[in-house]
């Protein structure tokens, strides 16, 4: 792959080789709609080491999927990445040319979109579609290598290689979802983004798919971002959780600390709304609704629903800072240790 100069600088500088596999710095995405400008991502910062699994949670419309699309550089008009960098394995992908970006997709960073299993072409055999994906994103493979990779990918998601000769209708939902994971790992990416990979599946199949993702991640040693709104799934799967609200990160904490003692009031409300086996029949919904991004309240965007909001919250946007070791929070009322 021919690298642009900026990426060369990054790669040749040893201090960058020690850096995390994924770095997102001050990422901004704006949609230019008829109603005005909508900030769908407002200065998102995060880092991920290889082998780490991060969960990205939030209500619908909080910007989770925009985040995934921005990291893949797949934001479509009227949306645009307005600023910030996404560095994957030492390469700033926001600076790549279109051609290089296409090669980076699937080989550096791959994306398993929401409802991916419905995106499989019903009239092509699974193997043909996997071959397509490889040829589109990497041109240097011979056909024996392609066949070898396809078999390897199917085996690692616990499917038989003969599945390559089958049509999508011959597979169950869980098997189709595993085929999508197999496509995602064909070129051994460094980062995998999985957007609600199990939202349409029942619990048993969900567990199979998540366990498959787990083994695949261990084999490749890649980092995974799991997008979803099911905190239960996060507790079972990820190492750290990022909570998103109106395009901003509210809290990023290791999963054990997030569940034991969430710091941000929104994270607290989310954890409280979870059904609990011990307290049968007790529900705590989160009062109010998420604001429309077009009419975002000034200051902290959560203040209209926040139980501890003060006047300062209505004026000053809280910074997303490391308040305790490894825990980043955007709230005026969380004390720095």
């Amino acid at each position: 792959m021919k690298l642009p100069t900026r990426a060369h600088v990054v790669l040749n500088n040893p201090q960058f080789l020690m850096t995390p596999v994924l770095q997102v710095n001050n990422l901004q995405v704006t949609y230019y709609t008829e109603g005005g400008r909508v900030r769908a991502l407002d200065g998102v910062n995060l880092e991920l080491d290889s082998g780490e699994k991060m969960g990205l949670v939030g209500e619908s419309g909080s910007g989770k999927s925009t985040m995934a699309l921005a990291m893949m550089r797949m934001i479509k008009s009227p949306g645009r990445i307005d600023g910030g960098r996404v560095v994957v394995d030492g390469v700033d992908i926001t600076a790549l040319s279109e051609n290089d970006m296409r090669e980076a997709r699937l080989s550096r960073i791959s994306y398993i979109p929401q409802g991916a299993m419905n995106s499989i072409n019903p009239v092509l055999r699974i193997g043909a579609q996997m071959k397509d994906a490889m040829q589109a994103h990497a041109k240097h493979f011979s056909s024996t290598e392609i066949q070898h990779r396809i078999d390897e990918a199917l085996v690692s998601v616990d499917l038989r290689p003969t599945v390559a000769r089958m049509y999508p209708h011959e597979l169950s939902g869980g098997m189709k979802q595993r085929v999508c994971i197999a496509i995602g790992i064909l070129l051994k990416p460094k980062v995998i983004i999985a957007d609600e990979p199990t939202s349409a599946l029942d619990v048993v199949t969900q567990r199979q798919v998540m366990q498959t993702l787990d083994t695949v991640q261990a084999q490749l040693g890649c980092a995974i971002i799991l997008i979803g709104h099911d905190m239960g799934l996060m507790a079972q799967f990820v190492d750290k959780v990022a909570v998103m609200y109106t395009g901003r990160l509210m809290e990023l904490s290791p999963v054990s600390e997030m569940f034991a003692k969430p710091l941000h009031p929104y994270a607290q409300a989310l954890i409280n709304s979870l059904p609990d086996l011990k307290k049968r029949g007790v529900f705590h919904g989160i009062p109010g609704l998420a604001p429309a991004l077009l009419r975002l309240p000034p200051g902290c965007s959560f203040h209209p629903r926040c139980p501890i909001a003060q006047d300062s919250c209505k004026q000053i946007v809280p910074a997303f800072e490391e308040k305790l070791p490894g825990r980043f929070v955007a709230c005026h009322f969380v004390e720095k240790a």
Binding site: M231, Q236, P275
Partner: peptide
């Protein structure tokens, strides 16, 4: 197989026998 939102209650080690 329920993903309990509880870190002390991880998915069992019981293998899911046979694929659907």
């Amino acid at each position: 197989s329920i993903p309990w939102p509880d870190l002390s209650r991880k998915w069992g080690d019981s293998e899911i026998k046979a694929r659907e």
